[in-house]
């Protein structure tokens, strides 16, 4: 018995694992030059801003220096200074870091809520689904930007946490709707039915059996959402309803361009941030589109 066990263990341990979804995705990204470049760019920017910002003195950057207002780029200030004499380059680094952080945070939270909501509605179906979808319909119809701005301006003790919570509260519906319609299909498949006959509790079927089968959809959607969320955050900060004053984001730099003087004559303040936002969103999308192709066998390139 023990020998048999050992022999079995040896056999079992020597088996190679089958190629997983991860390696397929990896192959697809490697094949797609644009996605590869985008990924490298993203990794580079991310490590750079998180790495460099450790050494940057935030207080130094946001300190107002009235003798250095609106200086054009120079060797002291690589990208010039803003109306408070603050170094634009430093703000760009910190801003990118803050924008990325909030992008990741909001994407993760909306993903968590959206997936749970969509999975529950789709998996249970019937009346539960009906009621949940009415709730979702209502959230979708709300004028998102206005509601968020109102909440941002009336919430007491406004902080980054409350900002991301407000954004999350009105952004989880897209992914929820996608996951729900996929879950509706999955629950009818025999493997989910089989789990029921095997005595697996429903919540376990939902998270243990159905969830892995919608995981690729989740990854793709969340990647594309990340791009959108970076854009939304910078838009809100641009209008002055994003990050609190003392923490600059990429949108904060752009908001200086609301002053026509700055927009017309001092491009160095807002242009780099605009280009950076564009490049970040473009590369995240490129990676997302490659993931989408990787998870859809019909669209795979090789």
């Amino acid at each position: 018995m023990d020998n048999l066990q050992k022999e079995l263990d040896n056999k079992i341990n020597n088996i190679e694992k089958s190629p997983s979804g991860v390696s397929i995705i990896w192959r697809e990204i490697m094949r797609d030059k644009l996605a590869l470049i985008s990924l490298v760019f993203l990794l580079l920017v991310t490590t750079l801003v998180y790495g460099v910002s450790i050494f940057l003195d935030l207080d130094e950057i946001v300190k107002i220096d009235l003798f250095a207002i609106h200086e054009p780029p120079s060797s002291d200030f690589w990208l010039g200074t803003d109306y408070g004499g603050r170094d634009v380059f430093g703000q760009l680094i910190i801003g990118t870091r803050n924008s990325l952080t909030i992008g990741f945070l909001v994407t993760l939270m909306t993903g968590l809520i959206g997936v749970t909501f969509g999975l529950t509605a789709g998996f249970f179906g019937g009346h539960i689904d009906n009621i949940m979808m009415r709730v979702l319909d209502f959230f979708i119809i709300l004028p998102f930007l206005m509601i968020v701005i109102v909440f941002v301006s009336i919430v007491p003790n406004y902080s980054i946490i409350s900002f991301s919570l407000i954004m999350t509260a009105f952004l989880w519906m897209g992914i929820a709707r996608l996951i729900r319609s996929k879950a509706l299909q999955e629950r009818e498949l025999d493997y989910a039915q089989a789990s029921k006959t095997l005595g697996t509790p429903r919540w376990k079927i939902m998270f243990g059996q159905v969830l892995p089968n919608v995981s690729s959809l989740i990854i793709v959607t969340m990647t594309l959402n990340l791009a959108a969320n970076i854009g939304l955050e910078s838009g809100l900060s641009f209008l002055g309803f994003g990050f609190p004053e003392e923490t600059p984001s990429l949108g904060t730099l752009l908001s200086y361009a609301r002053n026509p003087q700055t927009l017309e004559n001092r491009w160095w303040i807002w242009m780099p941030a605009a280009i950076l936002i564009f490049l970040l969103m473009l590369s995240v999308r490129n990676v997302g589109e490659a993931l989408k192709r990787a998870t859809d066998a019909r669209q795979r390139r090789g």
Partner: peptide
């Protein structure tokens, strides 16, 4: 009771979870 009743499904392609 469920333990004592089990089922074999028609389509072996969909009755096994492809991700497991």
């Amino acid at each position: 009771v469920r333990k004592d009743i089990q089922m074999i499904f028609q389509d072996p392609y969909s009755s096994l979870n492809p991700k497991k």
